[in-house]
Write a protein that binds this DNA or RNA. Sequence first.
DNA 1: TTACTTGCAAATGCTTTGCGAGCCG
DNA 2: CGGCTCGCAAAGCATTTGCAAGTAA
Lengths: 139, 139
Amino acid sequence: MINLKKICQDKGLRMTDQRNTIADIISELGGHPAGHPDVNLIYMKASEKDNNISIATVYRTVKLFEEYGVIEKHDFKDGRSRYEPIQDSNHDHLIDIDSGEVYEFSNTEIESIQKKIADELGFELIDHRLELYGKKINK
Amino acid sequence: MINLKKICQDKGLRMTDQRNTIADIISELGGHPAGHPDVNLIYMKASEKDNNISIATVYRTVKLFEEYGVIEKHDFKDGRSRYEPIQDSNHDHLIDIDSGEVYEFSNTEIESIQKKIADELGFELIDHRLELYGKKINK
DNA sequence: TTACTTGCAAATGCTTTGCGAGCCG
DNA sequence: CGGCTCGCAAAGCATTTGCAAGTAA
């Protein structure tokens, strides 16, 4: 399992109790379908472990983690921002419309086509967003 | 040029002055790079033609047009929602990071790969979002 | 006529921020 | 001591909504 707490320490972040709690929660949820929590979910889970934590701290902490390249923010079509640990390999997401669960995939072919398209339009590809929204088959 | 005013009438929408004004503005901006206006831009342009129009009306109108399948909403990474007339063919977008301009493209190969990926994960592909973010080369 | 629209201001929902108190090195 | 952090409440920002007055068909 990814250990965000350790990664944060290694990056020189001062780890308070609150930050450790939040790092643990995001680590535990990892890249599982039920992962990619939003601030509210993190806040609720953090409140179970520390009934004094403030949602403002959660917002400040995920922003900090993001700035330090520890986690990544995604804005799917459901509105609220969601977070996941940064991993070695890039990947895109398929979101289950019904449950909100998130699945990861990567496809080098699509990546190279994207680069080609940008090039043809006269652009250097800096970033991209690819999300698939689907319904489970045979449910 | 797309005539949203006419499309709205054909769909049976009651066309008030405000709705006509807004339809014209979105039609004029069309699919050009400077198109895909956000509510604020529409509101500012509408205010030039009708100095009494309310931003609440702009919000209500774009929502209405969207529900009637006349325009489409996009949430690019810059925050505010942007709108464009619905066209026959599907397309995706490349956004110029510096100017905010939006270019359209479509690629059948990517589309079929997307479908395949969803299928392999056990999903029926309902919707997708593909955005490229780039910087102009040779500027 | 009569239901639909509008402008205004107030209310949302999510996120950020000012402030004074607390904590860590 | 001195700078970071935190909790709280207030402020922001984009968007939505209640209401009373106005308008299209």
